[in-house]
Simulated scan of single mutants.
Amino acid sequence: MRWMVYGVSGFTGELVARLAVERGERPVLAGRSAEKVGPLARELGLEHRVFALGDAAGALGDVDVVAHCAGPFSATSRPMVDACLATGTHYLDITGEIDVFEAVAARDREARDAGVVLLPGIGFDVVPTDCVAAMLKRALPTATHLDLAFVTGGGASAGTARTAVEGSAFGGRARVDGVIRTVPLAHRRRVAHFRDRPRAVGAIPWGDVSTAHRSTGIPNVTTFTPLPALLGRLQPLAAPLLRTPWAQRVGRDLAGRVAGPDERTRRTTGCEVFGEVWDADGNRFRAALSGPNAYDLTADSVVEAVHRLPAVPPGAHTPSSAFGSDYVRALDGVVVSGPTAAR
C-alpha cells in the first residue's frame, strides 16, 4: 500500500513522518514547499512530491491513503477531500474544527459513491474523546446528555495556535437537542474527574460537538477544558476586536512563532480525558483515560489508522465509527478507566 503524509513541513506532519520511518514504513512525503519538504525526505530516505492543494488530484493517482496534516483545515480540507474523491484515495486528517467535521460529514454520499473513506480528526482531536463517548454510549444506551473534558500538557504547535486564533472571536458552541448552537464561552462549568485528579473545567467549542453526536446519537453534547472563569466573561467584550482582519493577522503572525513541544517536553507530559453520560431517569456513567503527550498520541494514531483504513466501509466516519470504541486502547501509553456507574 502506498500512502502519503501531506504537510510534513509542519510540526505534526514531521512527527508523523519520523514515527512512520521508525516503524519501518515508507510513506511519500509531500507539501507545498520544496525547500521544506525536500530536506526532510532526503534525511529520511523517502520519496517526496511538491504540489499545491489545487493540484492535488494530479499527485494522488497512485496513492491509496493520504494523511492530511496541513492546516488550518478550514482552508485546506475541502480541496484535499475533492482530490481524494476524484482519485479514489482514502482521506484522514488531524483537524479539531467543528465546521470541518460538519463539512466532511456532509459528503458521506459522495464518499460512498466513490468508494472512499473520509476520516477527519484521527489525532488527539478527537480520537480519545470520541472513543470515550462511544464507550459511555455502550454502557448507557439510553443516554441523552454527554459531557467530555480534556487537559493536555507541553504546549501547542504553530498550527494549533493558528487554529485557536481563528476561532477566538466566536465564543462557544454546544450541541443542544441534536443541533449545534452558539453559546457563551464557559457557559457551563463543572468538575471533571480525570484519572490523575479532579479539576474545574469550563465549556469550550471542541470537535466532539460535531463528532460525538454522529458516533453515539446522543443529542446533547458539551465539551470542556480547564478555563479561567474570567476568560468566559471577557471573550464577548473582546470578540469584535478579535474578528478584525488586523487582529487575526497579528494573531496568526504570533502563532507562527510557536515552535511546538520538543522531544523532552513531550516525553514528560501527557493528556487526560474524562467523560460522563446521563439519561432522563438519572442513570449516570463515567469513564476516563490517561495518555502520552497529545502530539505523540496524534502521530501514533495517524500511523496506526493508515493501515486500518482500507478495511473500513466507504463513507464519512468518526474514529469510533471507523475502528470501534476500543481503538484508543491500541495506542501507546493509553490507560482507560471505566465506564462505571456514577451517582
Rank of each mutant, 00 (worst) to 15 (best):
T269K: 07
V334P: 03
P236I: 12
E166Y: 01
F73D: 02
A203P: 00
A86Q: 13
E304T: 15
V335Q: 12
D93G: 07
L231D: 00
R162V: 15
R199N: 03
R214M: 08
V104C: 11
R252V: 10
E43V: 03
L227C: 09
T76D: 12
T340C: 01
G58W: 06
V335R: 14
I218T: 04
R26Q: 14
M4Q: 08
P339R: 06
S290F: 06
A247R: 11
S215F: 11
T182M: 04
D64Y: 04
L92V: 09
L289E: 03
V273Y: 14
S301P: 02
H48V: 00
L297E: 03
V117S: 11
L185W: 00
V183S: 02
R173N: 01
R199T: 04
V306K: 02
V132R: 08
L40Q: 12
S157A: 13
S321E: 04
V250D: 10
W206C: 08
V127K: 11
R181E: 15
A255L: 08
T269Q: 09
S337Q: 13
T244D: 12
E35D: 15
P313K: 08
M4P: 10
P313N: 10
A75P: 00
G58V: 02
A17T: 03
A143E: 07
E22F: 00
T144Q: 13
V65G: 06
M4T: 09
E97V: 03
T340L: 07
G338F: 06
R188W: 12
T225R: 09
A105D: 13
V201A: 14
G291H: 02
V81Q: 07
P245I: 11
P219T: 08
F274I: 02
A156W: 15
E22N: 10
P39Y: 04
V5R: 05
R286L: 04
A259Q: 13
P292R: 13
G256L: 07
V132I: 15
G315P: 08
Q235C: 03
R197F: 05
Y295K: 06
I122K: 00
L331Q: 12
F73G: 04
A149E: 00
P339A: 03
H68S: 09
P292N: 09
A229W: 11
D82V: 07
A114V: 06
M1T: 14
D332A: 15
A174S: 13
A156V: 15
F73H: 12
Y327L: 07
F51V: 08
P240R: 07
R23M: 05
T265F: 05
R329N: 08
L254D: 00
G7K: 04
P72A: 11
T298R: 08
A342M: 02
R78Y: 00
L254W: 13
W3L: 04
G88R: 10
P198Q: 03
L15R: 12
G45I: 09
V116S: 07
L146D: 08
V50A: 12
C84A: 13
E102D: 12
R286G: 06
M1W: 10
R264M: 01
